[in-house]
Amino acid sequence: MWSRLNTSPIESPTPASMSSYPVALLPVSIQRALREEPQVPMFDEQAPKPPTDQEPQPVNVGNTVILALALILGIVVMIRISKLSAGVLLVIGLIGITLRTRMQSLQYQNRLHEYDQTMEQYYAILNQYSARAGQHQNLVNRALSPENLANFRAALATEILKQYEQEAAIATDLAIDNQDDKAVYGSACASQVRDLLAQYFSQYFGAAIQADVLLTLPQLDNPYLVDFVYGDREHNLYIAIVIDVPYDLKTKTALNYVDAWQDRLTSQALHENGWILLKFAEEQVWRLPKSCCRELAKLVATVSCKPEIMAEFRQVGELPRLKQWSKKRVEQLATNGYREKYLSAIAKKNSSQNP
């Protein structure tokens, strides 16, 4: 199974980008690895709860008011029975309230001291908890920092890729026979466009790039010709790079379009052998070959954690996305001579540069 991935090292694919060039197809296991996060210890401590006691006051005014109201109510009831008893109750009640208020005032300093000690203990425990929580958060921040995440995910991806023997699929002992189109599945990209991209690939990636590579995959009856292969033995990272075209120039036959059966077949075969597939539209390569190189660099930086590879592309713009063709759209393009127009422009440009 294949899943489509925007070649940005940060953003996930969006519906708008999933059906547009450039398209990077990665095995699902690699995509999962590139979304994994390192495990960090859980911090399951509960924050200490503050004391429920309120700060003491010299006199508890609220309780005093309640006692006074209770005394008044008692006197009102008692006066109906005996005025003498009501008077005695009043005197005793006032004495009791006065003594209680006095005792509260005398004990205020002790109560305040106990309260302060309780709060000091609480804040000491809270500070210790906050320190442990802060240490844990720092650990999480370090573990999930962009650099550490990239290294962690690249290591996972490399571990998965090393389960395959992608290099074994490169057929070094087979020759490309352009006369027998049944012998090889492959790109129909115009040679001048492929040559243009080859120049820039050589400039930026050197020996890591091979052009016109035949792949022998068990799932395919015949060898599969790809325009380029990017190879990184250290990470066992192999990227098949294909330049898609909408139709054949001679026969006008539709070639690369959404859900084309041959594209699905070759993509699945590459996937099952641990290959990553990067696809450009021919027009993109013709117009912005440097930006195409930038897309490859972004993909390599993502999978193998080589951010330094992007240094050479700081002044190179993003490659504008181009919607993938439907079969109906391909037929319209063939009728309008879509490829012929820009290939003719390339020929004129080349002839003017080489009179």
Rank of each mutant, 00 (worst) to 15 (best):
2 W>H: 08
6 N>L: 09
7 T>M: 01
13 P>L: 11
13 P>H: 04
14 T>V: 13
17 S>C: 07
19 S>K: 13
21 Y>T: 09
21 Y>I: 07
22 P>K: 06
23 V>I: 13
30 I>D: 01
30 I>M: 03
35 R>G: 08
37 E>S: 10
37 E>H: 06
38 P>M: 10
39 Q>I: 14
39 Q>G: 13
39 Q>T: 15
41 P>D: 05
43 F>G: 12
43 F>K: 07
45 E>S: 15
49 K>M: 14
53 D>Y: 08
53 D>F: 07
54 Q>C: 12
54 Q>V: 13
59 V>C: 14
62 G>F: 08
64 T>Q: 11
65 V>M: 14
66 I>P: 02
67 L>H: 09
69 L>H: 01
73 L>Y: 11
74 G>Q: 08
76 V>T: 03
79 I>T: 11
81 I>Q: 06
85 S>A: 15
89 L>D: 03
89 L>C: 10
89 L>W: 05
89 L>K: 05
90 L>F: 14
91 V>N: 03
93 G>D: 02
95 I>K: 00
98 T>K: 05
98 T>L: 15
102 R>Y: 14
107 Q>P: 01
109 Q>V: 07
112 L>A: 15
117 Q>L: 14
120 E>F: 02
122 Y>C: 10
127 N>H: 11
127 N>G: 05
129 Y>G: 06
133 A>S: 09
135 Q>C: 01
136 H>P: 15
137 Q>Y: 12
140 V>T: 03
145 S>E: 09
147 E>H: 12
147 E>R: 12
149 L>Y: 03
150 A>G: 08
150 A>D: 07
153 R>V: 10
153 R>P: 05
155 A>P: 06
156 L>D: 02
161 L>V: 02
163 Q>V: 02
164 Y>M: 02
165 E>Q: 15
166 Q>V: 05
171 A>E: 10
173 D>T: 04
177 D>Y: 09
178 N>Y: 08
178 N>H: 04
183 A>F: 07
186 G>L: 12
189 C>Q: 07
191 S>I: 11
192 Q>Y: 09
197 L>C: 04
199 Q>L: 14
199 Q>R: 09
202 S>M: 01
203 Q>T: 15
209 I>E: 07
224 Y>H: 06
225 L>P: 04
227 D>H: 01
227 D>E: 05
229 V>A: 07
229 V>W: 03
229 V>Y: 02
239 I>W: 10
242 V>E: 12
243 I>C: 08
245 V>H: 01
252 K>H: 15
254 A>N: 01
257 Y>W: 06
259 D>E: 11
260 A>V: 02
261 W>S: 12
261 W>R: 09
263 D>E: 11
264 R>C: 03
268 Q>I: 12
271 H>M: 13
271 H>G: 12
275 W>N: 02
275 W>L: 04
275 W>S: 03
280 F>Y: 15
289 P>H: 05
290 K>W: 00
295 E>Q: 11
295 E>F: 00
295 E>A: 12
298 K>C: 10
298 K>T: 01
298 K>F: 08
300 V>Q: 04
302 T>D: 07
303 V>A: 01
304 S>M: 03
308 E>N: 10
312 E>V: 04
313 F>L: 14
318 E>S: 14
324 Q>M: 15
325 W>H: 06
325 W>A: 12
326 S>M: 01
327 K>D: 05
329 R>H: 13
333 L>Y: 10
334 A>P: 07
334 A>L: 10
338 Y>C: 02
341 K>P: 06
342 Y>T: 08
344 S>I: 00
348 K>G: 00
350 N>V: 14
351 S>D: 06
353 Q>N: 13
